[in-house]
Simulated assay, not measured.
Amino acid sequence: MDRVRTVCRRRHFSPRNEEAYVHWIRRFIFFHQKRHPDLMGSSEVELFLNYLARDRQVSASTQTIALNAIVFLYNDVLEKPLGLMTGLKRVQRQHRVPVVLTADEVKATFEVMSGTCQLMAQLLYGAGLRVSECIGLRVKDIDFGAKTLTVRDGKGGKDRTTLLPSQLIERLQKHLVMVAQLHSADIAKGGGYAAMPNALYRKYPAASRSIAWQFVFPSKVLRPWQNEFQLARWHMSDTTIQRAFKSALNLAGVRKHASVHTLRHSFATHLLSAGTDIRTIQLLLGHRSLQTTMIYTHVIQATKMVTSPFDRL
């Protein structure tokens, strides 16, 4: 498993991707009573993946992630590529329309929120961010003059630029003043560090204590980084905003099966309804394929105001 993690980090996999691969490789090994993968091959992989589909009844995407993890193990870690798996039973993929909130539902939800969580939710909707992208924002990623946000190392390891809503500028500036005050207090205590990706800390050792590299939504606690004496303030946990948003949905009386990620779906759908072209929405969302963005055209078609024939009777 140490070799798996080493190869993941050498290839700059995201932490979530690495954890997913480690999880499914461990599941595969434990399924076969802890036999070493070197002693197994395509038939054992087929048995495991078919078990997931038949007995565990996992979704198509879950089975695909497990397959990708095991193929990665054999191709990149063990350097022992698998042969053809003719007996593999793939789960049929179901195409579902994403849940979208109306503009009134979004507004009602924001009205029952407050503080930092409200600002984060408004930014998620106003810029079309993923939760991980929002909590990972640094001070340097905000350009108030150009009214843009730069998302670094998003899904697929890509950077992109998206919108900064004009109505959030003043509030975000006041929030950053509090972040700067917190940072100054941390420096006075001998801390003030912010964790930096990859080996950037060794290249720019002073940058981690600069305000530019601090997280826009910092954690409330300091944690050791690099060594036990170097205290850093990481970003807020994603569960904080997820729980706050779920609670707000209940208070606002929104009965849809929504999550905080629904704000990103709503961002795209509302832009499309307003006449924004699909290619621009693709760039703002950071989708690699236009086909991924095209799902929102189905949402528009499904919610388009069409008169029922019953109303003409």
Rank of each mutant, 00 (worst) to 15 (best):
D2T: 12
V4Y: 01
R9E: 14
R10V: 09
R11M: 11
H12Q: 13
S14H: 07
P15W: 07
N17R: 06
N17V: 01
A20Q: 05
R26T: 10
R27S: 14
I29K: 00
I29H: 02
I29L: 01
K34Q: 12
P37I: 09
L39A: 14
S42E: 15
S42H: 06
S42K: 03
S42N: 01
L49N: 10
L49Y: 03
A53K: 03
A53R: 11
S59M: 00
T62A: 12
Q63V: 10
Q63S: 11
N68E: 11
I70T: 10
V71Y: 07
F72G: 12
F72V: 10
L73F: 12
D76G: 04
E79G: 02
L82K: 05
L84P: 12
G87H: 01
K89M: 02
R90V: 00
R96F: 09
R96T: 15
D104W: 02
A108I: 00
E111A: 09
G115K: 03
L123T: 08
L124H: 03
L124D: 08
L124M: 14
G126S: 06
G126W: 04
A127G: 15
L129G: 08
L129F: 03
R130F: 05
R130H: 07
V131N: 04
S132Y: 04
E133V: 06
C134G: 04
G136F: 08
G136Q: 10
R138C: 03
V139M: 11
I142S: 03
I142Y: 04
G145Y: 14
G145W: 10
L149K: 10
V151G: 06
D153T: 07
G156A: 08
T162M: 07
T162N: 11
T162V: 09
E170F: 06
E170A: 13
R171P: 01
K174V: 01
M178F: 02
M178W: 04
M178N: 06
A180K: 15
D186Q: 14
D186H: 14
I187L: 15
A195G: 00
N198E: 13
A206S: 15
A207L: 15
I211P: 06
S219C: 13
V221H: 13
P224K: 04
Q226H: 11
Q226C: 09
N227H: 14
E228R: 13
A232R: 02
T240F: 07
Q242N: 02
Q242I: 06
R243Q: 12
A244F: 00
A244P: 02
S247F: 05
S247C: 02
N250W: 04
L251M: 06
G253M: 06
V260Q: 05
V260C: 10
F267N: 05
T269K: 04
H270G: 08
L272I: 04
G275N: 05
Q282T: 13
Q282R: 09
L284Y: 08
S289C: 01
T293Q: 07
M294F: 00
M294L: 05
I295R: 01
Y296L: 00
I300Q: 10
I300V: 15
Q301N: 14
T303I: 03
M305V: 13
M305I: 12
M305W: 01
S308E: 15
P309M: 01
P309K: 03
D311I: 05
D311W: 01
L313V: 14
